[in-house]
């Protein structure tokens, strides 16, 4: 396992939990609705190639839940501050699901510090006529089953949840509450975002599970059609979390994109 450290830093008054490890070009990993609870295998794998910076978003994990946080726009501007604060330049920006939405909202505002953009099963856009999965009506068990193509992984997830500490359950609730706040309506997207995605001119990779039940692959196509020069990789037999379910394909997709710039 590559070495990593976890620390809490202050970004404009918001105490922010940041995990960092590995070496190489900086890669900012923006997590999805479930948050980051540990230095996960996919972070460790990325850390073999990159200097991985994995914060918990405001309102998630061990980070503050600041008064000013109302919507994804706030989150995007926060991360522009965050990159300044960290002195990050030439960043490979990677976001999964909710984090992918944040990443694209950052990139339409400014790519000054961004070298490449990788969106993994990203929220943010809507495809009329193809409903998203409604995670807010799913029980934890149902959500786990919907999240994975490989149902053995789903069952492992469900079994692991039984052993959660109270503290971990509290964090899970906090993440759930903030996710609701940010994405209730419009559900997991910003209707205006698609109008400005053409502003993203850095190499962009869209990684999508073929069997994503939350944002089906046509959501990836919608991103591809809106971001000039972007590339969409559909990963077979894979649900909403390619970095967990298909780690090798995920890494190959990230590398294919970062090597372009």
């Amino acid at each position: 396992m590559a070495g990593h450290k976890a620390e809490t830093i202050n970004v404009n008054g918001c105490a922010t939990e940041v995990r960092r490890g590995g070496s190489g070009a900086p890669l900012l990993f923006l997590h999805g609705a479930g948050g980051i609870s540990a230095w996960a295998p996919y972070l460790d794998a990325l850390a073999k190639r990159y200097d991985v910076i994995a914060p918990s978003h405001p309102g998630f994990g061990g980070s503050d839940d600041p008064e000013w946080l109302d919507n994804i726009s706030d989150m995007a501007f926060f991360y522009l501050d965050f990159m300044e604060e960290f002195g990050l330049e030439d960043v490979h920006l990677l976001g999964n699901s909710l984090g992918g939405w944040i990443a694209s909202e950052i990139a339409v505002r400014s790519t000054d510090r961004i070298k490449t953009l990788t969106l993994v099963s990203a929220a943010g856009v809507n495809v009329v006529g193809v409903p998203m999965g409604d995670i807010f009506l799913w029980s934890n068990e149902e959500a786990a089953r919907q999240m994975f193509f490989n149902q053995e992984m789903a069952e492992q997830r469900i079994a692991a949840a039984e052993g959660m500490t109270d503290e971990q359950k509290d964090v899970q609730l906090k993440n759930y509450f903030t996710t609701g706040k940010l994405s209730w309506n419009p559900r997991f997207h910003n209707p205006g975002l698609v109008k400005w995605l053409h502003r993203i001119k850095v190499p962009t990779m869209l990684l999508w599970g073929e069997n994503d039940n939350i944002f089906p692959p046509v959501y990836g196509e919608a991103y591809r059609d809106a971001i000039p020069g972007s590339e969409l990789w559909i990963i077979p037999e894979c649900g909403h979390l390619p970095h967990q379910e298909k780690l090798d394909e995920f890494l190959a997709g990230v590398d294919a994109n970062t090597s372009k710039n």
């Binding site: 807010f136 009506l137 799913w138 029980s139 509290d170 609730l173 906090k174 759930y176």
Partner: peptide
Amino acid sequence: PTEYRMPPGYSSINSY
């Protein structure tokens, strides 16, 4: 079901 009755943020985390 619980998820129907208790959407996130409807109550404080403690009340939830």
